[in-house]
Design a protein around this nucleic acid. Sequence first.
DNA 1: GTTCCACAGGAAAATATGGAGG
DNA 2: CCTCCATATTTTCCTGTGGAAC
Length: 342
Amino acid sequence: MIRDARVLRAGFVPREVEHRESEVTLLSSVLEPITNDEPADTAIVTGPSGTGKTCVSKFVTERLREEVLDIKTTYVNCWRNYTRFRTLYQILDELGTTVDIHRQSTPHDELIDRLQQHDGPRTVVILDEADQLEDPSVIYDLHSLPQFGIICIANKEEELFGRVDDRLVSRLRSSEHVRMDKYHDEQLYDILSARAKWGLNEDVITDDQLYQIADAAAGDARLAIGILRTAASTANRENCERITDGILQNAAEDARAQIRQKSLDSLTPHQRVVYDIVRDHAPVGPSEIYDRYTEEVDDPRTKRTVRTYLSKMEQYNLLKAEGTSRDREYLLVDSATASPRQ
DNA sequence: GTTCCACAGGAAAATATGGAGG
DNA sequence: CCTCCATATTTTCCTGTGGAAC
């Protein structure tokens, strides 16, 4: 059934990247100077989730390493390492020079000094989810160190530029910018098809089913591969030789349910009360929601705040609103047809 | 038509929260 | 442990919209 599970895992970097040739070429050319021991420009990679930003970045740096031996790559997930300290620490750690650095006793500039003195092989630093950095000036600090090439990955350009000071913006604006768009269904099909070919035995899944996954994933390759992985492991567990339409249906729903659960977990207690009211009484109008809400909690927020809650949950695709004015009603999004938010 | 009222959602002020540094 | 600062959340105030009653 499953030939190679690694191929289906999130974060796997394939031997060939599908439909991102021009992006790969552009990113390679930006980093090219580093192969001649010259300072490379900073590259900015932006695009919605599941468009291959991380994948292309890792692919390009790995290929660089195959061509030129003495190049290192460090990958930092800025969402997990969101402070300046943790980001720099992570880089030093991967370079293997973190001895005797402690949170309390080590001044922050010490970390930059150490990076500055780093005279090992040229290094490409991938800053994934760079828009999550609480202090984006760390990009500026790294930018000024000639021995490091930087790839900044972010969802939206504005969110990255919005918070950094002007001198950095002007320097980043001149750097090369790689934009990635959502995949089309045919492109997703090609990606899935390649993964299925390497990861699964023959005839486990039909082309038609791959198209169904592509359709359900709405341009998000990570979600698409997640659905394929879930379907394959379910079929494996149930000793099926092929992935049935039923298994596929469930896998797609599981993937959506996981996204839904993640959204639900991010709600505050007050927001959760509002959600439960809509779930239990839908379809329901705004004033009834607010009346029930004030009954339910001891220190209710104002109507305006509840309206913000409702529109936030609408954005998260947990609820939908019908009608525009006095006839407005809120109800749950039908989970069978819900598409992940973007 | 006109008026009324519930409603949506923007802007800005006020307030709560969390984290760094003393 | 406390203070101060930055950020996020909430409230206040507001404008515009459209259905319903008159």
